[in-house]
Amino acid sequence: MSDLVFDALLCDLDNVIRFYDLDEVARQEEAVGIAPGTTMEIAFAPGRDLPLVLGQITRAQWAASISEALTAQIPAQRAADLATAFAHAPARVDQHVVELLHQARRSIPVVLVTNATVWLDDDLAQLGLTDLADHVVNSSRVHSAKPDAEIYRIAAERAGVPAHRCAFVDDSQTNVDAARRAGMTAVLYRDISDLRRLLAPIVNEGDSSFLQETQAGPHD
Rank of each mutant, 00 (worst) to 15 (best):
Q173Y: 11
C166M: 13
I74V: 11
H96R: 14
A76Y: 06
A156F: 01
R106D: 08
L112P: 08
W119T: 14
L120K: 03
R165Y: 02
A69C: 08
D171E: 10
Q73E: 10
S172C: 04
R153N: 10
D171Q: 09
E150D: 08
E150Y: 00
A80L: 12
R141F: 05
I154C: 10
A87Y: 05
T130S: 14
D177Y: 00
A87R: 01
R105P: 03
D177S: 05
S139R: 05
A167Q: 06
V98R: 09
L129A: 07
T130L: 12
R158P: 00
I66D: 00
P147A: 15
D122F: 05
A85M: 05
L132W: 04
A156G: 09
D134L: 05
L70C: 01
A149M: 11
Q95D: 13
L82V: 12
D122K: 13
A91W: 05
T71P: 04
V93T: 14
S172F: 01
R105E: 07
S139T: 00
L124G: 00
T174H: 03
V113C: 11
R158C: 04
E99Q: 13
I154V: 15
S139N: 07
I66Q: 01
L70S: 00
L120C: 04
Q173A: 14
F168M: 04
R165W: 04
A83T: 12
Q173M: 15
T114D: 11
L132T: 09
N138I: 09
D81S: 15
A87G: 01
G128H: 06
T114M: 09
S172W: 03
R153A: 13
L112D: 08
V136A: 00
L82S: 11
A83M: 14
H102S: 13
R105N: 06
H102V: 03
L129T: 08
H135W: 14
A91Y: 07
L127E: 10
P162Y: 01
A72F: 06
V137P: 05
I74Q: 00
V142H: 03
I74K: 01
S107I: 00
K146Q: 13
A85H: 04
A116L: 02
V93Y: 08
D134A: 09
D134E: 12
L101Q: 05
V111C: 09
D122M: 11
D121W: 03
A91M: 11
D171I: 01
I66K: 01
C166I: 12
I151M: 06
H135V: 15
D170T: 11
T117C: 05
F168E: 03
A83P: 13
N175M: 10
L112A: 10
A104H: 04
I108E: 03
D131Q: 03
A85L: 10
F86L: 05
A80I: 01
H143Q: 15
A72L: 11
D122V: 13
V110E: 02
E68R: 14
T71L: 07
L132Q: 04
H143Y: 14
A87P: 00
A149H: 07
V137S: 07
H88Q: 13
L112M: 14
H88T: 14
D94R: 12
E99M: 09
A104I: 00
I151L: 08
I108H: 04
T130E: 15
R158L: 03
L100I: 08
P162M: 07
A91G: 09
A145P: 02
D123L: 14
H143K: 15
A116M: 08
H135C: 12
